[in-house]
Design a protein around this nucleic acid. Sequence first.
DNA 1: GTGCAACACGTACGCCGTACGTGGGTCAAG
DNA 2: CTTGACCCACGTACGGCGTACGTGTTGCAC
Lengths: 217, 217
Amino acid sequence: MPAPKKFSRDQLASAALELADEKGLDALSMRALAARLGTGPMTLYNYVDGRDELESLVIEAVVRHAAYPPRPAADWREEVRTLAESYWTTIRRHPQVVPLIVARRTTDEPTLEFGERMLEALARSGRSGRELLVAFRLVVGFIIGFAQGEAGAQAFSPAGGTADEVIQRGRTLPAERYPRVVEIATASARGDRAEEFRAGLDLLVAGLSAGARPASA
Amino acid sequence: MPAPKKFSRDQLASAALELADEKGLDALSMRALAARLGTGPMTLYNYVDGRDELESLVIEAVVRHAAYPPRPAADWREEVRTLAESYWTTIRRHPQVVPLIVARRTTDEPTLEFGERMLEALARSGRSGRELLVAFRLVVGFIIGFAQGEAGAQAFSPAGGTADEVIQRGRTLPAERYPRVVEIATASARGDRAEEFRAGLDLLVAGLSAGARPASA
DNA sequence: GTGCAACACGTACGCCGTACGTGGGTCAAG
DNA sequence: CTTGACCCACGTACGGCGTACGTGTTGCAC
């Protein structure tokens, strides 16, 4: 019956993601995306409800690329680490989009899939109900918070800048007033993010182990 | 020499915060704020560099209200808990602003003050340098992540809604596909946020204790 | 009184998201 | 083959935004 569609939702999503990656979140607009696709702005509304849904699409496009081992690890601790690291690695590949992921809560399919699988691992620590909720919030909060801390396009100044520039600026804070802040800014300038992430994860898993029920595997 | 100033930066900040609290982040615009203050839009540029700095001002206005005990607690664990809870309680009073706090990294004075004091507590667990950085990221990530999870104005659907509505929607997800997600959504609907926060904090502190150097107080 | 700096703010430009209307393409039914 | 219904493309236009620029106005220093 209809005229054949000119695009697919996937095309929209990946074009939008490219746009955001290349020129930043601010450059991601209906009009800019339409221009990139060689069409008029209103055409996009045949595929997407509006700006908001477009953003959701971009997030989904990022998260969808996360790949997890086909079968859960036998040890729930290892599984938690694997899932967390995989998710973090994935979103970190698109630093421009991180603020979007961080500021929203989404329920697209890949996010739910990740959540369900993480919950399965945490459940094996002997938790359920409220305890499971708390453990989940803790893990997700860490991942989100860590990603935000790293990608934070604007930080250590209203002016913004890349994360590295920002750290440099942090080191020049008044050391007599904020000695420890300067200390970690310095450490951060030298450090390897992935290593720091894993170290944090170890602390986190240690905490989860402490609160685990005896019957945990 | 000059004409007397019509406003103060503090006036701007609190008027902007009221605006955001009442009508949401989207309603926070230069023009709307100017109208609320009974002046023209361009007047604001005599006080603030632009939209970005206005947002920083709002964040600062929120964070500034956090109050901590005058003297640090003797036990660093208790101090970490106290600081974290105070910070969290403060920002959660302005749920509309949380996405802003979460998506940005700021270095206003109150935030640095909080950071320095938190770092002081964490340092007493025997950490320094990279370990201190990791511990700090972990704690801040948890607070940020938790606040985001709660306030997430839009969640469990591109349509958005209050956090409570969102949880209700979460409970109606396909239970055979995402059983654990439904489980925690249900638990969350019943639960007390503050209690959950403290429970998460306990897990977190347990993890920090595990990694602490022997000489910790 | 004169000059000048600090401030208020009107106007205007180029973006944005998107409501609305029109026209062209495609298939099903007659 | 014609007709009709429907979906899609997309031009136009409106109201909002951030803010560059220019002008007027104020109040102190000299």
